[in-house]
């Protein structure tokens, strides 16, 4: 079954198109890396996939339902970008935040043994169990980022969507975090990950979607390195385009020029 499917999705902020005619399917059990330059619409595409925003045109389906109508919070978890800035002054402990991951399953009733176990397990998996009773506001950026990842893990969802979840982590923690994502994916969890570090994501994700407003590449990670999609999407080296005789036509070039002009 398909976890997420996008069909000719267009989304603009005002008059500025951010996602332009993107179609792709994320099958269940996939580990998809979303890459693209800054401002390429990766984060927006992720929120569209989750139904947090509705496309101007085209269709987004989440587990077969229109994403914005999808009501089953138990099946989806989301770690937004820049969570380290969330609610810095609010008095709340790490455990209280991670417990929120269980709320979709248990919004009103007493927490069961399974709820408590899932919270403890999530805290341990990202190595913050000893911080459980600390105030979130007193943590470092990296620690705080783990809190939000732990909340998503505690939710034990089928789909995990993460927007640059390792930005505040050091190299070692990043390594172990990706190992953890690999394990979760092996256990059947569908993962969609926005990542700016292309080297990391192509090594870890099973498939890559390369985006710069339009979709430049969608396929197995191994094929991504061999394709010219990266250069085409990033538009960093114009000569690559000129020397390769691919089907990138005038529209692509003008698209890139426009992007360069903005940045």
């Amino acid at each position: 079954m398909t976890a997420v499917s996008l069909d000719d999705v267009v989304f603009s902020y005002g008059d500025v198109p951010v996602v332009d005619g993107v179609s792709l399917d994320v099958p269940e059990g996939d580990f998809l890396g979303l890459v693209g330059p800054n401002g390429s619409g990766k984060s927006t595409l992720l929120t569209l996939m989750l139904g947090l925003q509705r496309p101007d045109s085209g269709e987004v389906r989440l587990f077969g339902e229109p994403a914005h109508e999808f009501a089953d919070g138990e099946r989806v978890a989301y770690v937004a970008q820049d969570v380290t800035k969330t609610a810095r002054d609010m008095p709340i402990t790490v455990r209280e935040v991670v417990r929120m991951g269980r709320y979709p399953r248990n919004l009103f009733g007493r927490f069961s043994a399974a709820d408590h176990a899932a919270v403890d397990d999530a805290l341990e998996r990202v190595d913050i169990f000893d911080l459980a009773d600390r105030r979130v506001g007193s943590l470092s950026g990296g620690q705080r980022q783990r809190v939000f990842v732990a909340r998503a893990l505690a939710a034990e969802t089928e789909l995990l969507a993460l927007d640059e979840p390792t930005v505040a982590l050091d190299a070692e923690s990043r390594e172990s975090f990706y190992t953890l994502l690999g394990e979760l994916n092996d256990q059947g969890m569908t993962i969609v990950l926005v990542e700016h570090d292309i080297g990391v994501v192509t090594a870890r994700a099973s498939r890559i979607a390369c985006l710069n407003k339009r979709l430049f590449f969608h396929g197995p990670s191994d094929d991504f390195a061999d394709s010219d999609a990266l250069a085409a999407a990033y538009g960093t080296d114009q000569r690559v385009l000129d020397h390769t005789h691919h089907h990138h036509d005038a529209t692509v070039s003008s698209d890139e020029n426009a992007t360069e002009g903005q940045s």
């Binding site: 989750l50 947090l52 999808f70 009501a71 089953d72 919070g73 989806v76 978890a77 989301y78 770690v79 937004a80 969570v83 969330t86 609610a87 609010m90 709340i92 209280e96 935040v97 929120m100 709320y103 979709p104 919004l107 009103f108 939000f148 909340r151 939710a155 969507a161």
Partner: peptide, 17 residues
């Protein structure tokens, strides 16, 4: 619980429906 979730992190609360 829903009040706390929405207060702390509205976006994640929406994602969790």
């Amino acid at each position: 619980r829903p009040l706390l979730y929405v207060t702390f992190d509205e976006t994640a609360a929406r994602a969790s429906r």
